[in-house]
């Protein structure tokens, strides 16, 4: 399952298969068609759709009527200048936004058919299905490497028997296993920054989420650690839908199937990544990607 990620994205790009679009009819269902073994996701992930999403911090209207769709098993990058609402948007998807005092969100965030803001929905289940990796690596400081990865699995009371297997699988999936397999009992905060971030990815993936939200996951990492995380993304999207907030346009260009540009809490443009960077439709996008502001 590892190793063929880049091939997959290249195939997809070559086929003109742009993960994200606002016109669903142009999208071909990847799983049903299964063009080749290498492009087939190992697990069909779920689609995320934002409908008329508004977010507030107290009186501050941070997101204004966002409509956006994230294709399953694709990496969608969210770019935009600081304060444009990127992080707010991503935190609305798994309802972490509401953890901030005074913050609230209105509108719909649908995971396939289910609106995660529906009153009947349990917020814990939402976060279980939609994992999140944060800007700063945040392994639990009191826990070992193993316990960090196991922490999510333990919450759901999974059988203890296959805990070790699942931890190993998660660490392998995060490309960390070979580096830490001999020191699983050591504290997670003893790792380097890049390793910590991959540990957090392993921790998130260990509970088998449908969607992976990444809020500027590389902004605290050095270039080499960044590259490792970016390589991982190609593998990860075989199993989950990835939403990646980044302030680094090169990163978006490198890893994202499609890209959305946010400005002042509004969606300016969304489309296939290469189009966004080569022939943007909106002049504001053009100004931003060519470095005129931001």
């Amino acid at each position: 399952m590892t190793g063929d990620g880049f091939a997959a994205s290249q195939t997809a790009a070559a086929a003109g298969e742009h993960g994200l679009s606002r016109s669903p009819q142009t999208r071909r269902p990847l799983v049903a068609q299964a063009p080749s073994a290498s492009a087939r996701p190992t697990k069909a992930a779920r689609r995320v759709r934002l409908e008329g999403l508004d977010a507030y911090y107290g009186d501050n209207h941070a997101l204004r009527g966002l409509d956006l769709e994230f294709e399953p098993n694709k990496v969608t990058a969210i770019i935009g200048p600081s304060g444009c609402g990127k992080s707010t948007m991503i935190r609305c998807i798994n309802r972490m936004h509401e953890e901030i005092p005074g913050a609230r969100a209105e509108g719909k965030v649908c995971l396939d058919q289910v609106d995660v803001y529906d009153p009947s929905v349990n917020v814990v289940a939402v976060r279980r299905a939609i994992g999140m990796v944060f800007q700063k690596p945040n392994p639990f400081p009191t826990m070992s490497i193993f316990d960090n990865v196991a922490s999510g699995i333990r919450l759901s009371g999974a059988s203890r028997a296959d805990l070790r297997d699942r931890v190993e699988r998660a660490l392998r999936g995060a490309g960390l296993w070979d580096e830490v397999k001999d020191r699983l009992a050591e504290p997670g905060i003893g790792l380097s920054g890049g390793q910590q971030q991959r540990l957090c990815i392993a921790r998130t993936m260990a509970v088998d989420p449908e969607v992976l939200l990444m809020d500027e996951p590389c902004s605290a990492l050095d270039p080499i650690a960044t590259l490792k995380v970016e390589e991982l993304l190609a593998d990860l999207k075989q199993r989950v839908t990835v939403v990646l907030v980044t302030h680094n346009m090169q990163q978006a260009a490198r890893v994202a199937d499609s890209t959305a540009f946010l400005l002042d809490g509004e969606l300016v443009e969304v489309g296939a990544t290469d189009e966004m960077f080569t022939q943007p439709k909106d002049s504001r996008t053009e100004d931003y990607v060519t470095g005129k502001f931001g």
Binding site: D112, Q113, V114, V116, N122, A125, R128, A129, S156, G157
Partner: peptide, 13 residues
């Protein structure tokens, strides 16, 4: 089928 996992009654309790 719902997209969301079930949170066990024991955990909620």
């Amino acid at each position: 089928m719902t997209a969301l996992p079930v949170i066990s009654a024991r955990r909620r309790r």
